[in-house]
Amino acid sequence: MDLASVEHTETTGGDTAELFHAATTVEAAIRFASWCDQQRHLTAQAAMEYFGLQKATAYRWLNAYRAARGIHA
């Protein structure tokens, strides 16, 4: 069997995991939260630049992080 011709059809975390160089979305979320915890001025622009996120994705992940931490912006 030629392994180069095998098509990978199963996903473990989708595009989000790939953006974070993570095996799963859970790992991506942990990496994102860890990065957020280290920031003095947490902004969507910083997340976009650091992770290469689209604007809507950066805001969605930041809002989820803030909600989980009980941070009201």
Rank of each mutant, 00 (worst) to 15 (best):
57 T>D: 03
16 T>V: 06
32 F>H: 00
70 G>I: 15
5 S>F: 09
67 A>S: 03
27 E>D: 13
42 L>W: 00
71 I>P: 02
41 H>E: 07
65 Y>R: 00
49 E>A: 12
15 D>Q: 05
65 Y>F: 13
21 H>A: 06
47 A>M: 04
30 I>K: 12
21 H>N: 08
25 T>E: 04
33 A>R: 01
21 H>P: 02
49 E>Q: 12
46 A>E: 08
45 Q>P: 06
16 T>R: 04
19 L>T: 07
1 M>Y: 06
53 L>V: 05
47 A>L: 06
13 G>E: 08
67 A>N: 02
34 S>A: 10
6 V>S: 02
7 E>Q: 14
40 R>D: 13
5 S>V: 09
2 D>S: 14
70 G>V: 15
66 R>E: 04
66 R>L: 08
42 L>S: 00
14 G>F: 09
9 T>N: 09
69 R>M: 15
11 T>G: 09
12 T>Q: 06
3 L>T: 04
71 I>N: 02
72 H>R: 15
15 D>A: 11
34 S>D: 09
66 R>V: 01
14 G>V: 04
24 T>Q: 11
47 A>T: 02
13 G>D: 10
56 A>M: 11
63 N>W: 02
37 D>H: 02
49 E>Y: 08
1 M>C: 06
21 H>I: 05
45 Q>M: 12
46 A>R: 10
68 A>G: 02
13 G>F: 10
64 A>I: 13
7 E>P: 01
56 A>V: 13
13 G>H: 13
49 E>F: 11
16 T>L: 13
47 A>C: 11
28 A>N: 01
71 I>W: 07
63 N>L: 05
10 E>G: 04
36 C>I: 09
35 W>F: 15
50 Y>C: 10
35 W>H: 07
73 A>T: 03
69 R>E: 11
5 S>L: 13
57 T>Y: 05
59 Y>S: 00
54 Q>N: 07
50 Y>M: 06
17 A>S: 12
23 A>E: 13
48 M>F: 03
2 D>Y: 14
46 A>N: 06
27 E>Q: 14
49 E>M: 12
13 G>K: 14
43 T>C: 05
53 L>F: 13
3 L>P: 01
22 A>H: 08
46 A>Y: 05
2 D>P: 15
43 T>V: 04
56 A>Q: 13
73 A>P: 11
43 T>F: 04
37 D>M: 02
67 A>K: 10
8 H>S: 05
29 A>V: 13
30 I>D: 04
19 L>V: 09
59 Y>E: 01
45 Q>K: 12
54 Q>W: 03
65 Y>A: 01
27 E>A: 15
14 G>L: 10
63 N>D: 08
48 M>L: 06
39 Q>K: 14
42 L>I: 03
34 S>M: 10
38 Q>W: 02
4 A>Y: 15
45 Q>E: 11
18 E>C: 06
38 Q>F: 03
52 G>V: 15
